[in-house]
Computed example of a mutant assay.
Amino acid sequence: MIKVIILGAGNVAFHLTTNLLKNIEVKLVQVYNRDITKIQYLKNQTSITNNLTDLKEADIYIISIPDNAISNFSSKLELKNKLVVHTSGCTAMNELQSNSNKGVFYLVQSFSKERKVDFSKIPICIEAETDKDFKLLKKLAKSISNNNYSINSKQRESLHIAAVFVNNFVNHLYYIGNQICEENKISFEILKPLILETANKITSLDPINAQTGPAMRNDTKTIEKHTTKLTVNQQEIYTLLTKSITKTYGKKL
């Protein structure tokens, strides 16, 4: 059985903790967080602490905190000959500053505490300094998900950039679409089947073949009509994306 300690209490740490508590191949021996009130709900399920000197023995120590805090936080860990990993998509493995063995355990998913996720479908990207540690991380990953990948730090940074485009930026466009609906007293619910179909379409088509819309058709009349209805900020985003689409498909406005 793999012994694991989670360091952090954010969205990723919360969901990972929830999963590992139910995982029969893993023993979650402890959860650390600087603000212990955020992990008090776990006190009857596993050991909790807000003191790094009180960390228990484990096979893997998973740092799941904001990216910009990983380097400094890891430098405070005295875990020689132990495996310490982080869950960041855009932080290189060598930014871990502890005197331990180093690795990465990156879950490619958007996490919100209010929504349950199916861990069996989440891609997990792993990296380690040694073959022994890689095999251990792979064993942990397999106990959680059916989708596991060996990804180095350079690849993971590019993957994280791609994830920002397909997740964070797309969600912001949902927000703008919702704004436009609210301003015109239209229910955003009308657009949800379209959103789902667009997402489902790329399970069978490459994105390049799934594109539709006025920019794809070079429908300048519709494009001009749209821009007159938008705020300055919305116009900038609409125009930038329209130009990118028309350039992709070799058409000029």
Rank of each mutant, 00 (worst) to 15 (best):
T46S: 02
K138Q: 15
K3I: 03
S150R: 14
N81M: 06
T248K: 15
E57M: 09
Q109F: 03
I202L: 06
E25S: 14
I60Y: 01
N209F: 12
Y41P: 00
H160G: 08
Y41D: 03
K185G: 07
V170H: 07
D59I: 05
K252D: 14
V26R: 01
S47T: 13
I151C: 04
N81S: 13
N101V: 04
K154W: 07
S187L: 05
I126W: 02
K221R: 12
L20M: 09
L20N: 02
I190Y: 12
V29C: 09
C181A: 15
I2H: 08
I161K: 05
S47I: 11
Y175S: 12
G177Q: 04
L42Q: 00
L241A: 05
P66C: 07
N200Q: 14
T49K: 04
I65L: 08
I180L: 13
L159E: 04
T222C: 04
A210H: 12
S74A: 10
M1K: 09
S143A: 11
S158M: 15
I176W: 00
L240Q: 13
E114V: 10
I5S: 00
K132R: 15
P193Y: 08
K102N: 10
Q30V: 04
E197S: 10
E25D: 15
I48R: 02
V166L: 05
N184L: 06
L253P: 12
K116S: 15
E236W: 01
I126A: 08
S71I: 03
C125H: 02
G103I: 03
Q45M: 11
K76S: 14
